[in-house]
Design a binder for these strands. Structure first.
Lengths: 297, 297
DNA sequence: GATTTTTTTGGACTGTGGGTATAATATATG
DNA sequence: CATATATTATACCCACAGTCCAAAAAAATC
């Protein structure tokens, strides 16, 4: 993805936040981004595709930040989970993605609907896994139910808060409140063996979230490529991050923890710069590879 | 509302169910209902207004059927509540109102948004009141929270069931499942004094649901009017319903229970006939008046 | 039955917005 | 310099919401 295209995405995002998706015409985007119609339709084949790019962009941001939150923490830490959930709500709110995202579901366009559904199910699948991390193996048969319930409670409570309250919604307090509800529900559901979704459904969900595999070769190539392209502009200390990660990757037994920590620092160093996008994409792939590493062990 | 307009509403509804709101053009409605553009825009000033008429129509149906369920039952009966909730889900599903309704929220049009919000808040307000009926006075501070949570859980679970399951969703089982969750949550929230919405919010909600007042004069006029208009076509036993209700209304102390029972029978007798619409409107007003009666006592 | 009023008709017309097509121009790449 | 690719500007097509209006049909009124 080139700079120009990114610029267009950011412009479109800004307009969608301000005016809403439906109310923003392609012409508005052209005027604001100062590009011609031809260029726009060179980047995106439809207005919908532009929207999907924005949503994907937000999704990447969420994924990376969630990975980073877990660096050096226990998977069973409830507070971390609360923060991970909050990230989603915050990013969605900052970018006004909530209404946009919801609009996808109910748009006549089946392409958009499928896209939204896939994202939604991926989120539920992730939540289900995390709930098992937190409540342990005995929670597994009820985790999908609880994830669905939790998502519904949060989403709706947020919605009502937004439309009924004058004051700003404290996302993390809201998530924590919902989490306390899940504490109660999970215990009760285990005790009474009461659930709605069958194990089969869970399996179908698991498939969805199997991320894109990435090989060591692909990853090192990406890193080296970035290094070379920016050889002259990179600060010496910034270069060190790359060198360390590359060295660690070729080690017979790369240490996941170290890679994660350094990657996080790397991303922090580049936040707000012109390279933020590319670095995030790198971080995403590094995270993906590290996850594979951990699974392999 | 004349017959023709009703016919148009039903046709539009059918098309919206089949193709979705956005994907149905006004022209489609004209063709299907075999009316001209002029007529359509004589009835509704916009396509949105047509949609709102459909939604209101569904709402009336729900309200009347909910009233009828309570005839001769205790307000605290949990099963009745479950059925009342199920009615909403069923009517919405039959008429495909769910996606339509949700689409309103996220449409660029602020008029539609307000309309949807008002309906939504009214539903929450109703649920809040019913939860107090069921769990008693001590539940009052937590009833709004629980209503919001319950709505969110149901809506979302339904959504996931629909998009993930091949089999038909058993609405009532789903509602009952959610109700068991609320049993647990309510008890726990009371025990821990844990809630999110403040009392003020609840007061604001209560205002919304204060129905339209109706006077005894207005009601009797409506009843007599219908009687006269259909003097020749009404069966003798059908006439008896009207006569009884009218007599009971002028009594110094009308008995709510009797009026409700007879009204229900009246509506059943007319279900599926050409007068179903008008009778439902009458039943709605009778229910409203009876509610006032009960409050006064 | 004639007259007036209301409703309906159907088509022409406007404006907006998504998307296509294309010839000319600019920018990079080798 | 030459060739490939990206960008621009503009005109154009189509679908659709909504307006306008004069004529026809239907209903109400006398």
């Amino acid at each position: 993805m080139n700079d120009r295209k990114r610029q267009v995405i950011l412009t479109a995002q800004k307009l969608f936040v301000e005016k809403g998706f439906a109310a923003t015409s392609v012409q508005d985007i052209l005027d604001e981004a100062k590009i011609s119609k031809g260029t726009f339709y060179n980047y995106f084949s439809t207005k919908n595709e532009c929207l999907m790019a924005i949503v994907n962009n937000g999704k990447d941001e969420i994924t990376v930040r969630r990975q980073e939150l877990l660096v050096g923490q226990k998977l069973s830490d409830k507070q971390i989970f609360i923060e991970q959930i909050s990230i989603r709500q915050q990013v969605n709110r900052d970018r006004n993605l909530l209404p946009i995202f919801e609009a996808l579901f109910h748009s006549g366009d089946s392409e958009l609907r499928d896209f939204a559904q896939k994202h939604h199910l991926a989120e539920l699948s992730w939540m289900t896994g995390r709930l098992v991390d937190i409540y342990g193996k005995k929670a597994k048969p009820y985790a999908l139910d609880c994830a669905v319930l939790m998502f519904g409670m949060m989403q709706h409570t947020m919605h009502i808060k937004v439309i009924s309250a004058a004051d700003i919604v404290e996302v993390e307090a809201l998530v924590a409140f919902t989490m306390r509800r899940i504490d109660t529900l999970m215990e009760n559901m285990i005790a009474t063996s009461d659930r709605l979704f069958q194990q089969e459904a869970l399996l179908a969900f698991e498939k969805i979230n199997s991320g894109n595999n990435i090989t060591k070769t692909q990853l090192t190539e990406q890193l080296q490529n970035f290094q070379q392209c920016n050889e002259n502009t990179l600060q010496p200390d910034e270069k060190q991050y790359f060198e360390f990660i590359l060295e660690e990757l070729v080690t017979p037994n790369p240490r996941p923890f170290l890679i994660e920590t350094v990657t996080r620092s790397l991303r922090e160093a580049f936040t707000g710069t012109d390279h933020a996008f590319e670095i995030r994409e790198l971080a995403l792939n590094i995270g993906e590879y590290v996850a594979q590493l951990k699974k392999g062990v």
